[in-house]
């Protein structure tokens, strides 16, 4: 199995552990990731607020390079995925747009190379069965709420899962030996950049999600988006202080949880980079496993 790999800007900065864990896990699972050479920014929210064509042309260049190579593109970041998918669909829908974009980027992109969410690739291409057979440190008794965020499974007609009550990450957690905890905030918005620019809007949104996860009885949160990670992890103490709460809720990229279950070294997966201590829970998990082994 081989895919073009588009990490996107966040994965080389705030979300570097997402990049590290993705590569490590893919390697363990036998998935070859060919990083798109000289990839450019997907445009994120800035481009599509500025100019529609720009918002399509930026991802199209990366997709075109993958298309030349004959590969679909695996994309970990939910926002990058959303922009790339939007481009793919628009190009497929309109020959005219395809022509315009090709002129702008000076490359051919016909929509043949598909934008795929990394989670989709793992769950639906590789399959849960294959993953579970490779698990050697199951996430036993770890109660995980899966947090998909607002972009990963939307818009509905394009998504690879139910847009309101998605299941793929929950099923993945189960395949890793963990306990997926059902909750109603799977696709609630984390507030995105509002936490930075308008904290009076952003903080209550984060608070709702963290509180709901806590009330659902979760030990930790699994996510698939670097911005969601920042909000839930980096802002957690700040939000807790504002609302007088101590959440102590570790937040993981789903790839990190996969890495742990596949027996990779947590430090090497980048888990030590989190703001809310996440190593502790992994350690406990390993200790419990050790006790089970000796008993």
């Amino acid at each position: 199995m081989k895919y073009a790999y588009y990490p996107g800007c966040s994965l080389s900065s705030t979300g570097v552990e997402y990049d590290i864990s993705t590569k490590k896990v893919a390697e363990s699972l036998g998935i070859e990731l060919w990083e798109i050479p000289e990839w450019n920014c997907c445009g994120a929210s800035s481009a599509h607020l500025t100019d529609h064509l720009l918002a399509l042309a930026l991802p199209a260049r990366n997709l075109a390079i993958a298309e030349e190579k004959g590969l679909d593109v695996a994309i970990p970041c939910a926002a990058c995925y959303a922009r790339c998918k939007a481009t793919e669909v628009e190009v497929k829908d309109s020959k005219e747009m395809q022509k315009t974009i090709s002129e702008v980027i000076e490359r051919q992109y016909t929509g043949k190379a598909q934008a795929r969410a990394l989670l989709d690739v793992f769950v639906n291409d590789l399959g849960l069965q294959s993953i579970s057979t490779l698990v050697n440190k199951p996430l036993k008794d770890l109660k995980v709420v899966s947090y998909y965020g607002c972009l990963l499974v939307r818009p509905p007609r394009l998504g690879f899962d139910d847009a309101e009550d998605p299941q793929s990450m929950d099923k993945l957690i189960e395949a890793l030996g963990g306990t997926p905890v059902d909750w109603a905030f799977k696709t609630e918005c984390c507030g995105a950049a509002h936490a930075t620019t308008k904290s009076e809007v952003g903080f209550p949104m984060i608070e709702k999600i963290l509180t709901a996860a806590k009330e659902a009885g979760a030990d930790c949160i699994a996510t698939a988006c670097p911005l969601c990670m920042s909000n839930l992890d980096m802002r957690q103490t700040q939000v807790g202080a504002k609302y007088g709460k101590n959440y102590s809720l570790p937040v993981f990229y789903f790839t990190e949880l996969m890495g742990i279950a596949l027996g990779l070294n947590p430090e090497e997966l980048g888990i030590s980079k989190h703001f809310v201590d996440a190593l502790g829970i992994v350690k406990k998990l390993n200790e419990a496993a050790g006790r089970r082994d000796t008993a």
């Binding site: 139910d162 847009a163 009550d165 059902d182």
Partner: peptide, 10 residues
């Protein structure tokens, strides 16, 4: 039940 957000059936 196709309306996951309403939780019918759940």
């Amino acid at each position: 039940s196709v309306y996951g957000e309403y939780g019918y059936g759940k």
